[in-house]
Design a protein around this nucleic acid. Structure first.
Lengths: 264, 264
DNA sequence: CTTGACCTTGACGCAAGGTCAACCCTTCAT
DNA sequence: ATGAAGGGTTGACCTTGCGTCAAGGTCAAG
């Protein structure tokens, strides 16, 4: 009777330690918290030691330690215990940093930013935007770059550097502006000729500069643009035929005729 | 063929988005990410849109949103979407604060502090320590207080205030010092008489002051001390008989004989 | 003497994947 | 051309840390 007064029921214990009754029973079940004595009716009765132990368990578990690890720690020597806590604390700090970085990503998501393109690519798209390229075209580019980055993530920065060099040529700027506005052209728009001129100009320069287009990946990129453009508009068919009339074989790829092929 | 070059396999997709292949398939399974097309051999092939979507999913899920909630958000209007993100961010901030508080608790655990006693009790134990009480006795007190707090958490501060008043009496201080050192006494230690004197003194004062000991909880506390003391040492038996010879009935409780009972 | 709040064990459910198994493609070095 | 490596496919069970019934026994209060 005296004993009983100084003892706690499971719900009192749980409430004190800030856990659920179910959790306490779970801890008993897996042997993490020793089964206490029972009273005459089979109720578990707990003493202060159980409270202390349960609070220890809860603290460690709440900090993210798996219950098996908690078990180990509680059984360990004091040094191993503090070592273990230090480790958990380290993980905790890492987790906090992770969550903080995540908040930034969330903010970008909310702002509608395109996620997960490397900074170099984002910078390049910014530059396109700054020369007045239509947002829809940027979207096409963005998607294309995602695929490229997915396939060759490590070469991306050098590729982007090349693209920046390309944009130093006013003709290239003009080309992108035309491509962008071409999204709204009708099939027989006369500006297509100017577009073809720009392309030819750039292709000639590329051949002169000895750019064989053999990066492998740049080819992929061009294939890609080609594909999406093909799907996008019949204008492309016209463009292709214009260039073919002038003796250009591949569309964007710089090779002229079977006679003066640039690469095998 | 052109198509295929601009497409990703499931492992490429997963790697790009920073998730496992299994997770992607899981998302397909629960309808969170649309099943893409297949190539001739039945492989799933993904486009840029899938990458973007998967990164959105991963960001939200990593932030702790349940996948069903992620689903809802992705299907929701832009306003609902940003609202939802705001909510998630709020939860994230709360989680970060929780983890930071947890780091403090962990530090206390590592330091060997007694966890989860309210500040008032900790202060009281400090005071006992400061008057030279043995650490083992403090441990007994600590356990006792845990049980008390567990049973009546809201009255604890006023109880502790009373205890502080009690300790303003030098006799009480002396009593605790004797109790503390009694842990090492042999059964027939002569200082037990002084201990009994102190107790009697305090009990007389209590009766004079009209303290009926009717807090209900204070009684519990005393029962408790009594119990643990009983278990602790045969000295208690002697002490009890000494006090009974002097006409004191209950041990620590302030009631003298059947004739002048203080409470019903 | 009946409520209503606890307690008991036992069993199933859940999220968010991990981890086989058993099999089919593709590719590359031999 | 061949066979091993290294993708991919479905399907089904395993895991963690409990939540949530179900089907009762217990206990204090009106």
């Amino acid at each position: 009777m005296r004993q009983a007064e100084a003892m706690l029921t499971i719900s009192q214990l749980a409430a004190y330690a800030g856990v659920t009754v179910r959790a306490v029973r779970h801890y008993h079940h897996i042997g993490l918290l020793a089964e206490p004595g029972r009273n005459q009716s089979g109720y578990r009765i707990y003493d202060a030691e159980a409270v202390v132990q349960l609070i220890r368990i809860n603290t460690l578990a709440a900090a993210g330690a798996p219950l098996t690890r908690v078990q180990e720690l509680l059984d360990a020597s004091p040094e191993a215990f503090t070592d273990g806590i230090e480790k958990i604390d380290k993980d905790l700090r890492a987790e906090i940093r992770r969550l903080q970085r995540l908040r930034q990503r969330l903010a970008q998501l909310a702002a509608g930013d395109h996620p997960a393109l490397p900074p170099s690519v984002v910078g390049y798209l910014e530059r396109l935007r700054s020369i007045g390229i239509d947002e829809r075209y940027i979207e096409l580019e963005s998607n294309a770059w995602i695929m490229i980055v997915a396939q060759v993530p490590d070469q991306i920065d050098s590729v982007i550097a090349d693209k920046h060099v390309e944009l130093d040529d006013p003709v290239a700027v003009r080309l992108y502006q035309l491509l962008s506005s071409a999204l709204d052209w009708s099939v027989d728009d006369p500006r297509l000729v100017e577009l073809a001129d720009c392309m030819e100009h750039l292709m000639v320069r590329a051949v002169e500069a000895g750019e064989t287009g053999d990066l492998g990946l740049d080819n992929q990129f061009l294939d890609l643009l080609e594909t999406s453009a093909d799907n996008a508009s019949p204008l492309v068919t016209r463009l292709r035929s214009i260039l073919q009339e002038r003796g250009w074989n591949g569309w964007i790829r710089a090779e002229r005729t079977p006679t003066n092929t640039v690469h095998a």
